[in-house]
Simulated assay, not measured.
Amino acid sequence: MRILVLGAGVVGTAAAYYLASDGHEVTVIERHPAAARGTSQSNAGLVSPGDATAWASPAALKTFLRALYNHDLGIKVRLRFDPYFFAWSLRFLRQCTQARLRANTDIKLRLALYSRGCINAISADTGIHYDERKKGILYFFRSQQSFDTGTDNYRYLAEHGLPIEFVGRDRLVELEPGLAGAKDRIAGGVYSPIDQTGDSSQ
C-alpha cells in the first residue's frame, strides 16, 4: 500500500518507520527544510513515564478555575464565545475526579512505558541517536504541600510498575549537584531512574 505521512517530526517519522517495516511504500512530506523543526523541536525532549500522572484531576480543576483570572499559571484559559472551547472544557472537567485521574493515569503510564520501549528499539535497530541521556529524571518540589501531593501520585505510579525513589535534600544534591545552592528552598524530590532525555532535532 502507498501511504503519505504529513510531517517529519517524532511521531511522523516513527509512523513512517513502522509502516515501511510492515512493507508499505511510504512518502513523508515536511514543510520545514529539515526533520523535527516544528513541534518536535519545541518539545521538552523528555521520555518520561515518571510524568505519567494525568493532567485532569481535582487539583487541575482548581488550577483551571484560577486560570480564569490569574494569567501567570501554567494553564492558560481565555474565555471567549467558542462552542468548541466550551465543549472541550466540559469534557476536561468531567475527567477531574479522583476515579478518572487513576483510570487515565493507568492508561497514560502503560502508553509511556510502551513508547519508551519503542523509541529505544528504533534507536537500537537503526543506529539513530538523538543526544539521548539515560540517566533518569529528577522531579523536585519547592513546598511541603506540593511534595506531599506529588509523592501520593508517584506512589501510585510505583504501585503500577514504575521504579521510583523518594529523595530528601541530601540525595537530591547527590543526584544533581547543581541544586546545592537551592537545597534549603526544596522540600524533597522524586527520582525516576528509567526516564530519559534527548533532543529530537539532533
Rank of each mutant, 00 (worst) to 15 (best):
M1N: 05
M1L: 02
R2W: 09
I3D: 02
G9D: 05
V10Y: 08
V11I: 14
A15Y: 03
Y17M: 02
L19C: 06
A20L: 02
A20C: 07
A20G: 08
V28T: 07
I29H: 09
E30W: 04
E30F: 06
R31A: 14
H32Y: 12
R37T: 01
G38R: 08
S40C: 09
S42H: 11
N43F: 02
N43E: 05
V47N: 07
G50M: 11
D51E: 08
W55Q: 02
A56H: 08
S57T: 04
A59P: 06
A60K: 00
K62W: 07
T63M: 10
F64Q: 03
L65S: 09
A67M: 09
L68W: 12
L68Y: 11
Y69E: 02
Y69M: 08
D72M: 08
L73S: 08
G74V: 04
G74I: 00
K76W: 04
L79M: 13
F81V: 13
F81M: 12
D82E: 10
D82G: 07
D82L: 08
D82N: 15
P83R: 12
P83Y: 10
Y84R: 14
Y84F: 10
F85Q: 14
A87Y: 08
S89A: 15
S89L: 15
L90S: 06
L90F: 13
R94F: 00
Q95R: 13
C96W: 02
T97D: 01
T97N: 01
R100L: 03
I107W: 00
L109H: 00
R110T: 00
L111D: 01
L113G: 01
G117P: 10
G117H: 13
I119N: 01
A121K: 10
I122G: 06
A124Y: 04
D125P: 04
I128A: 15
H129V: 13
Y130R: 12
D131L: 15
R133W: 08
K135R: 15
G136F: 14
G136L: 11
I137R: 11
Y139T: 09
F140K: 04
F140S: 05
F147E: 13
F147V: 01
F147A: 14
F147N: 13
G150D: 11
T151E: 15
N153L: 10
L157I: 07
L162W: 05
G168Y: 02
R169I: 14
R169Q: 15
L172V: 03
L172F: 07
V173Y: 05
V173A: 03
V173S: 05
E174M: 11
E176H: 11
E176L: 04
E176A: 11
E176F: 07
G178Y: 09
A180L: 14
A180E: 15
K183G: 02
K183A: 13
D184I: 01
R185D: 12
R185K: 12
A187F: 10
G188M: 02
G188I: 02
G189I: 03
V190C: 13
Y191N: 11
S192M: 01
I194M: 10
D195T: 11
T197W: 00
G198R: 12
G198C: 11
S200W: 14
S201V: 08
Q202K: 13
